[in-house]
Simulated scan of single mutants.
Amino acid sequence: MDVLFTFVPRENQQERLQAEFPEVNFRFLYKDKSFLPTADIVVTYGEDLTAEDIESAENLKWIMVASAGIEKMPHAAIAKKEIIVSNVKGIHKTPMAESALAHVLSLKRSLPFIYESQRNREWNRKTKSSELAGSTAVLLGPGAIGSEIGRLLQAFGVKTIGCNRSGNDAEYMDEMVSIENVSAVLPDADIVLSVLPSTKETYHLLKKEHFQAMKEDAIFMNLGRGDLVEDQVMLGALENGEIGYAVLDVFEEEPLPADHPYWKMDNVIVSPHVSSHSGKYVERALDIFIPNLHDWIEGDKSPSNPVDMKRGY
């Protein structure tokens, strides 16, 4: 059996795989797809496979995506060949929840102002700091990541309102609303945070009227996918003072162009799609892949975290 990694894990992680599966031929090659035609399984971040690659992969039966998003994959080509796709849903919750909390606390406790004062050698105590306790957060997408963010926010005394398609209950949410009714809770939100995936339903989901419904000092955070908000709508909300701050980890165009207005805006934090980064990322991905590979070898062709390519998650 041939397993192709299109990224290169650390040496100790490669050794872990080879020791666990001596009968498997592993290839760890950064974006080198020359062995794709013979690969039975491909492990990828999901951004480097084309329809032509899938067509050339004569033996490919399973793609394990070491990410949650699959929007950049050639869906039709994969579906045509009935290739099984799974991902590593759940491994992002700890680093992303910590990133969300770090950004919120940083803004509430005026850390950007304090750091800037230090750089300028200014003893300036006019921080305008506020407290996180007693605030309200609306979380778009209270799944594994959103619920973990909710858990941490609740520990700081924050009221959490979850928003999903159904409006059904989710963990660590004090209230729930459906996406179609989200406008009803936006005026109460001090924080609006999205971890939604990129699907047909979420594409440009938030409109101008949603930002107009938010508090003028609200913090909007997008840690999900950049196409949740049309770029000009986001810019307009910030330039017109419809919200107080935006923390953006994802963008419609990545990398963000050097001449984009966000870079120079005082009410924007540009985070270059790093909220899920962690030294434990690949280790956690392998913790999912290894049991699935054992099952696959023994004949169970239904790995955990299967992805519905039609729904997009």
Results as ranks from 00 to 15, higher is better:
Val192Leu: 11
Glu175Lys: 12
Ser304Arg: 14
Ile83Trp: 05
Asp227Glu: 15
Ala57Glu: 03
Asn25Gly: 11
Arg165Ala: 13
Lys72Trp: 09
Pro187Trp: 08
Lys207Val: 01
Ala184Asn: 12
Gly167Val: 15
Tyr172Gly: 13
Lys31Cys: 11
Ile114Leu: 14
Arg125Trp: 12
Pro261Lys: 02
Glu71Val: 03
Gly134Gln: 12
Arg284Leu: 11
Ser99Gln: 09
Leu238Trp: 07
Ser147Lys: 02
Leu223Asp: 03
Asp169Met: 15
Gly236Glu: 07
Ala237Gly: 13
Ala79Thr: 14
Glu230His: 04
Gly299Ala: 12
Ile63Gln: 02
Ile54Phe: 04
Ala218Gln: 11
Gln14Val: 05
Pro142Thr: 10
Thr50Ile: 05
Leu29Glu: 15
Arg109Gln: 11
Asn292Glu: 08
Ser271Gly: 00
Thr38Asp: 15
Phe28Ala: 08
Asp259Leu: 02
Tyr203Ala: 06
Met234Thr: 00
Tyr262Gln: 08
Ser194Trp: 05
Pro306Leu: 01
Glu209Ser: 14
Gln18Glu: 15
Ser86Asn: 09
Glu283Tyr: 04
Phe21Ser: 00
Glu239Ile: 11
Val192Glu: 06
Met265Cys: 02
Thr127Asn: 13
Lys128Ala: 14
Leu293Ser: 04
Leu139Arg: 01
Leu132Asn: 03
Asp308Lys: 12
Val177Arg: 10
Ala258Gln: 13
Arg121Gly: 06
Asp53Leu: 07
Ile161Thr: 02
Gln232Ile: 02
Lys31Trp: 11
Asp227Met: 14
Phe5Leu: 07
Met234Pro: 02
Lys208Ala: 10
Thr202Pro: 09
Arg284Asp: 14
Lys215Arg: 14
Pro95Ala: 00
Ile114Phe: 06
Ile41Gln: 13
Val42Glu: 10
His260Val: 06
Phe251Asn: 07
Asn222Tyr: 06
Gly150Gln: 08
Glu252Ser: 02
Trp123Lys: 00
Pro37Arg: 04
Pro187Cys: 14
Arg225His: 01
His75Asn: 13
Arg109Trp: 11
Glu254Val: 07
Arg16Trp: 10
Met234Lys: 03
Asp174Thr: 01
Phe5Pro: 11
Lys200Cys: 02
Asp2Ser: 12
Asn120Trp: 06
Gln212Lys: 14
Ala97Leu: 01
Ile161Trp: 08
Thr199Ser: 09
Ser278Gly: 09
Phe28Pro: 04
Glu20Tyr: 07
Asn240Trp: 02
Gly299Leu: 12
Phe28Val: 10
Glu216Pro: 00
Phe156Ile: 07
Pro303Asp: 01
Gly167Pro: 10
Val307Asn: 13
Leu186Asp: 00
Thr38His: 10
Asn164Phe: 13
Ser166Gly: 10
Ile269Trp: 13
Ala66Leu: 11
Asp259Met: 04
Ile179Gln: 15
Ile290Leu: 12
Leu132Glu: 09
Glu254Asn: 03
Val85Tyr: 08
Gly236Asp: 04
Asp295Met: 11
Val85Glu: 01
Asn59Trp: 03
Leu256Ala: 10
Ala76Trp: 00
Glu283Asn: 09
Ile54Val: 15
Trp263Ile: 01
Gly224Asn: 01
Glu52Val: 13
Val229Met: 03
